[in-house]
Structure formats: C-alpha cells, structure tokens
Design a protein around this nucleic acid. Structure first.
Ligand SMILES: [Zn+2]
Ligand SMILES: [Zn+2]
Length: 301
DNA sequence: GTTCTAGAAC
DNA sequence: GTTCTAGAAC
C-alpha cells in the first residue's frame, strides 16, 4: 500500500472510499457522515482550508462518478443536484464552525469561500471551504493563486454551480462540459490582489501584500468584535444580577417589586478587552480543539 | 498535488 | 550573485 510516485493523485479517493472514516487520523479527518467526509487540506492555501469529499453510496453513486465535477454532471442532472446539495449542507455546518474558531483564535471573523476547481489535479470531487485570505506558506506559485482568486473564474463558487440548475437548459448544457481549454488559460493571468486589484510582478511581492491586507482587516475588525463581546458580557452580568436580586427578594420577602435588578453598572471604560491591533494571531487549521503541529499525512489539493 | 532544479530575470 | 519561475519527475 505504498504511496507510489504513480498514485499521488489518488489521495483523496483513498479517503473517500474508506469504510470507517473514524479510523483516519484526526489530524486529517475532522468529521464525517454517511455521505461525506471533511478533511484538512494538506497544503492549505489560506489560514483555514478544508475539503469536503462526497462518499460513494451503494445503489446511488459509485466512486467513478465522483471523480470530479464533470463526471458528476455526466451521471445525470438529478443525481448531480443531490450530491451537490449534500456537500452544500456539510459546507454550511463547517463554515459556522470555522467562524466560531476565527472569533476564538483570531478575535474577529472574515469571509469564507466555498467552491470547486473545474480542472482539478487530484482525483475525487472535493469542495474547498477556505478562509478568504490566501495567506499561507503553501501558497507559492501563480497557478495556486489564480486557481483560488475569487473573481478570476477558475474557482467555481458553489452558489454559482448551483445557479446553473436554475438557468436555461442551453446554459446548463454548456457549463457542465467544464472544458479544460476554457479554464486553464485563466491560471496564467497576471497576479492581481483580490482585495484591491493591484498588480504584482512576483509571488513574493504579492504574498507580502496579501499579508498586509489581512493585517489591515484584522486591525479594523478586532476592536469591533471586542466591543460586541464586552456588550454581551455586560448584558449577561446584568441579567444574572437581576435574577439574584429577584431570588434574594423572594427569600427575605423584602422586595420592592420594581422589577428592576440591582445591577447598575455603568462601565465608563471604553473597551474591556480591545486587543492590541498589532496582534497577528494566526490559528492553524485545526478546528474542534487546538492542536497545532499536526504532522500526519494530510491530503493535498 | 509537490519537489527539484536549470536558467531567466533582475 | 541572488531571486524567482516553470517544466520534468522512469
Ligand atoms: Zn490589495
Ligand atoms: Zn483540487
């Protein structure tokens, strides 16, 4: 079962066909259902980067039909829709967890992209669910960058793919061909920042700029989320104080039933715990609990 | 998908 | 001389 030079493109399929996904290393596989599994991208191209893989289902869909988007559409419109809806549902759950993790570890949350590559390198359909930053050590070459640029056209957003089902039959028919020749040239496009469209001549320059873009957003957003958190905390304290006062009043029977609790805290403080904006907290891709430094063999894309 | 590295670009 | 890209991988 050695990972030969010849089967590098089967990594994802090998996960998808596992009868017991729970036996896959937790450093690789986050969670699974009867119809899908969620794994870490082994070479994440953003701060958060996951893949949702559909599992073959006896009597419904087999592994050959799940090679990529093109083979999925070839096996029928209704079948394709069911698989995509299933992936969408899983991605929505994952997105929510990612946002919670962002707030917890980065003190703010930012956009999340959900989509496919029309011409994938690895076999087996995989839905990318990734944070919108493209800041990562594994982001190295132009092809990587353009394949995830949200407006380049190569990255097919899930909502876009789903919209094909609502379009004219001729449009649908054309889209589901997913011809490599229409997509591959997009990967050669000049390097442009997806935030501000500035052009860069080399990847290192672009990467430096992308980091600055993210730092700027973080510095802008963190104080906002810190204030929200502080407001929630105050509201909770006020509520608890009110309950305590009510209970106390009932016990002693000396309540002046004005309904208003005792809490009158007026924090003149501007911000409880506004983080210093310079912070570059960079939580890794592990979601459920912290567990950086995973060294297991995670899948690549 | 990545790694490795020749040679282009600066 | 160093940085960076891009094509082969038996
Ligand atoms: Zn920019
Ligand atoms: Zn891929």
């Amino acid at each position: 079962m050695a990972a030969n030079r010849d089967d590098w493109d089967l990594v994802l399929r090998n996960y998808a066909v596992r009868a017991r996904p729970e036996e896959i290393s937790p450093n690789v596989c986050l969670c699974h259902t009867d119809t899908s599994i969620v794994i870490h991208d082994r070479y994440p191209k953003s701060i958060y980067h996951f893949l949702v893989l559909p599992r073959p289902i006896p009597g419904f869909i087999d592994v050959d039909e799940l090679t990529d988007l093109r083979t999925l559409f070839k096996c029928g419109r209704e079948k394709a829709k069911k698989v995509l809806d299933g992936l969408a549902e899983e991605a929505a759950k994952l997105k929510k967890e990612m946002e919670e993790n962002m707030l917890q570890h980065n003190k703010f949350k930012w956009d999340i992209w959900i989509g496919f590559h029309p011409v994938p390198s690895l076999k087996h359909l995989h839905l990318h669910v990734m944070s919108a930053d493209l800041c990562s050590d594994a982001m190295k070459i132009k092809k990587h960058y353009n394949s995830f640029h949200p407006q380049r056209g190569f990255f097919l957003h899930l909502h876009e793919v789903l919209s094909w089902f609502e379009a004219e039959p001729s449009f649908y028919a054309r889209k589901i061909q997913l011809k490599p020749s229409t997509y591959e040239p997009l990967l050669k496009h000049d390097l442009e920042c997806f935030h501000c469209n500035e052009e860069f001549k080399t990847m290192p320059k672009l990467k430096e700029h992308l980091q600055e873009e993210w730092d700027t957003i973080a510095a802008r957003e963190r104080p906002i989320w810190a204030r929200k958190k502080a407001a929630r905390k105050r509201a909770e304290e006020k509520k608890q104080a009110a309950e305590k006062a009510r209970a106390h009043g009932a016990d002693e029977g000396h309540g002046n039933d004005k309904g208003e609790g005792a809490s009158k805290k007026r924090a003149s403080q501007s911000d409880d715990d506004a983080e210093p904006n310079t912070k570059r907290a960079r939580t890794s891709e592990s979601l459920p609990e912290d567990e950086a430094g995973g060294s297991a063999t995670e899948p690549e894309t």
